[in-house]
């Protein structure tokens, strides 16, 4: 199998709920081993795009190529097979509340690998150790704080050593130190495990710290208005709206009216 340079390609993607178009004619490539940021203001459809990339929402138009194969034309079984190479961290952690944190991380391994119970336990300890939650292995998710839930969710996303990690707002709602640790962790995971990481976020500090490529979505024009790493967009983007967003500035009033 020859390795294409981009692990995930989105071509002419349109997402709509009935008549309500979320994003249209969206195209971008995620390079292998990069940390790719999906940026944009609240409500522009960032999470919706992630949902269509992880198989939860069928696109209205367009294709998503994963490792050269069309993700949405396959059968459900093919898609599930591809999905096993994904790790997903949902916004609120989405831990299974009936299982302890350790069981949450162990479940994917119990289902999809031939590892024995002792090995699984060792790996669970490693993954929880990586996110700094070794002590919480027997805790129920309801007893965790929001930040801990997020980290436990990340440990679960790492359970099967995914090729591609989808992180929905990984550092939103975390304290600065934990958020920084999360950023370091993301970088180390990319370097260490060679995973490609897609981050959906509008936390500028962590975007600048981790992302080396990205796409900026607009809620009004309903498509991508800029491509490039967050730092490039901040310093050299032609679009004033993108520059303003990346610098936490107000858009000039005249422009604001023009956009809506």
């Amino acid at each position: 199998m020859s390795k294409t340079e981009s692990l995930l390609s989105v071509r002419g993607l349109t997402l709509a709920f009935g008549d309500h178009v979320v994003q249209q004619d969206l195209s971008f490539d995620v390079r292998r081993g990069s940390i790719f940021a999906v940026m944009g203001p609240s409500g522009c459809g960032k999470s919706t795009i992630m949902r269509s990339m992880i198989g939860l929402l069928r696109p209205t138009l367009g294709t998503i190529l994963f490792d050269g194969a069309d993700y949405w034309t396959g059968t459900d079984a093919v898609r599930a097979e591809m999905g096993r190479r994904f790790g997903v961290l949902f916004q609120g952690g989405a831990l299974w509340s009936a299982l302890t944190v350790g069981e949450n991380v162990a479940l994917p391994m119990q289902m999809f690998t031939t590892l024995d119970a002792v090995s699984i336990q060792r790996l669970v300890a490693v993954k929880l150790g990586l996110v700094g939650l070794s002590a919480a292995v027997d805790t129920m998710p309801s007893a965790l704080s929001g930040g801990m839930r997020k980290r436990a969710g990340l440990a679960r996303a790492l359970a099967l050593d995914p090729d591609i990690l989808f992180l929905d707002e990984p550092s939103a709602g975390l304290d600065p130190v934990t958020s920084r640790r999360m950023d370091d962790l993301i970088l180390n995971l990319r370097d260490g495990l060679g995973a490609t990481i897609i981050v959906v976020s509008h936390e500028l500090a962590s975007l600048f710290a981790v992302a080396d490529d990205g796409v900026f979505l607009d809620a009004v024009r309903k498509t991508a208005i800029a491509h490039g790493s967050p730092a490039t967009l901040r310093d050299g983007c032609a679009d004033p709206q993108v520059r303003a967003f990346m610098r936490r500035e107000q858009v000039e009033p005249a422009h604001k009216e023009a956009v809506g």
Binding site: G129, L130, N188, D191
Partner: peptide, 13 residues
Amino acid sequence: AATKLLGLLPDQA
């Protein structure tokens, strides 16, 4: 990369 990941893990189980 392995050293980095190892550094994140606590020293004592």
